[in-house]
Design a protein around this nucleic acid. Structure first.
Lengths: 134, 134
DNA sequence: ATTGACTTTTGCCATTTGGCTAGTTATAAT
DNA sequence: ATTATAACTAGCCAAATGGCAAAAGTCAAT
């Protein structure tokens, strides 16, 4: 039978599980909480997170909201949907110099603006420390 | 195990297979032609069309284009995707909570992705500390 | 150290999916 | 009518999904 890397884009093989786990612990949720929220089982979700099992569309759909994902996002990451045709393509304005990692963007966006600013404040402090000890 | 009518919207039960067949014959294509075009098997497609089997997301994705469907359409019809919120249109933002402050976004975007991720990693640590000392 | 309460992982198994290979049923053409 | 030929269907089986229950880890508090 066709394994998932079959002909799908397979972002997952290189990290869908990890992404899901990151998101879950970042929220934070335990496996059973997520399982309960999504109407699935913790054991399966655990295996999904460490990439022992590949989640079906049904499972992805169920865990999307509790994790704060857009269904589309997960489907695309899983290779079930081809990369958003044109819309969504490059998320936000895509700011200046580099680009902002979508995952990072999403996580941060859930914080209050004060927290967001505090975060980059801390970052700049760390950078100045790093610089002075160089 | 959860059968597909589980908690999915299940348009299919009342006709996804039929719809696919209608579309296929309308084109017109034979089962084997469609199978070849989509890299699947005729027998399976046949069963899908007469609703003996329910197509996985992988199969839906493969047959979408040959049938002239948008992937989204089929996924929605199959109940894999919830009815298009308003038209995929709203696309981007997505983030549940709030919005990403433009200034924050701009500053962070200048950093490497590793740094970006490290930053939110630190944030999550701080949050868990805050939570535990609450 | 040990108990106790959680969280995650493993073992096991029922259910499904989907492909291959034969059958069966149309559709023509002689 | 009788073969051909093409389309569909059915039998079978390997692989994978996902849930339940029990076994490991974790970690705080005693």
């Amino acid at each position: 039978m066709a394994s998932y890397n079959d002909d799908m884009v397979n972002v997952q093989r290189t990290g869908l599980g990890e992404l899901i786990r990151q998101q879950r612990v970042a929220i934070p949720l335990t496996l059973q909480e997520l399982a309960r929220l999504s109407g699935t089982s913790p054991s399966h979700l655990g295996r999904v997170e460490r990439s022992e099992r590949f989640p079906s569309a049904r499972i992805l759909r169920k865990i999307a909201k509790p994790l704060g994902f857009e269904e589309n996002e997960l489907f695309t990451l899983a290779g079930y949907l081809s990369p958003q045709p044109s819309a969504t393509s490059e998320a936000q304005p895509s700011y200046g110099g580099g680009q902002l990692d979508p995952y990072v963007s999403r996580v941060l966006a859930q914080e209050s603006v004060e927290t967001q600013r505090a975060v980059i404040g801390i970052l700049s402090i760390l950078k100045s420390i790093a610089k002075s000890t160089a």
